[in-house]
Amino acid sequence: MTYEVPRKFPTTVVGSYPKLPPAKEALRRLRKGLASEEEVRPLFEEAIKGVVEDQLWAGIDIISDGEQTREDMVVYFAERVKGYMPGEWVKIFDNVYFRKPIIYDRVEWTRPLTVQDWLTATRYSKGRPVKGILTGPYTMVEWSFDLYYKDRYEAIIALAREIRKEIEALVEAGAKYIQVDEPALSTRPWREEAEIAGEALKILFNGIEAKKIVHICFGRVEEILPYILDYPVDQFDLEFKNSNFRLLPYLKEYGYNKELGYGVIDVHNTQVESVEEILRDIERLMNLGILPPEKVYVDPDCGLKRLPRDVARMKLRNMAEAARIAREQW
């Protein structure tokens, strides 16, 4: 079955989705050592199927597996890449923690980590493309402790070389959209940091035959923007809604002309954006006159994992409807 992605304002997601009950149960069993990955695989398959069905119901054009198998965007990869060891509890907010992983040896990719989930989502997607989504090397290093590499640069480049192997595996499996998540990049919005991340992206994407996307969010993106525009990617996927579209004038100022993943859904707010509101936000971008609708991918600011499932579904549904109307308008 094939699906034709709309030429204008295709809709997509950033990646994560609320954990569905089978995924929660599978993660619980894994955490407590009650089952192996193989044993809980059917539960994850069921969860991914549910996530895909939600996205199809909402009318999303380019979907994801909802990252149902990933306890955390860094820990998931760290637990599966050689050279990492499990970390101890570190606070993220309030009394909530994550096990910040530790690089203790040379990092080494040993097997595909996300391909199975990508294949599962593709099986249920009724022809809609599924994004391959990975945490980028810059963020992996920033959000890990490093006891092995001489400095951050060396660690980031080493990880980039290994993560590239995962991208190659995804492309070989058939992925046409590859997204690398680099949320940490916006926290140090300096030229030298952008250059390190840019070098890593060259390693990741050089010669890769797929749509190449980088997702950055929640930070001072406007400050790093001028330094990243020449990254070897087709699309930047950026958060706009949560920061009240503060970034828009900078796109114009810096002559932005790549494809844009345009975040119009606030993932930290349970209030569902109305179709009219999303349409108005699409108009804000289009009125700048910097990008044609063919280069605008409408999506949420970031992953939806912290929202209740019903809210996430409705937000996506309204977003898809707004994009449909926008296609008639623009």
Binding site: F93, K100, W143, R188, F218, G219
Partner: peptide, 14 residues
């Protein structure tokens, strides 16, 4: 109110 990143840390304050 909501959470916001605390400087360049993977930590969020309210």
């Amino acid at each position: 109110n909501g959470l916001l990143r605390y400087f360049d840390n993977n930590f969020f304050y309210r």
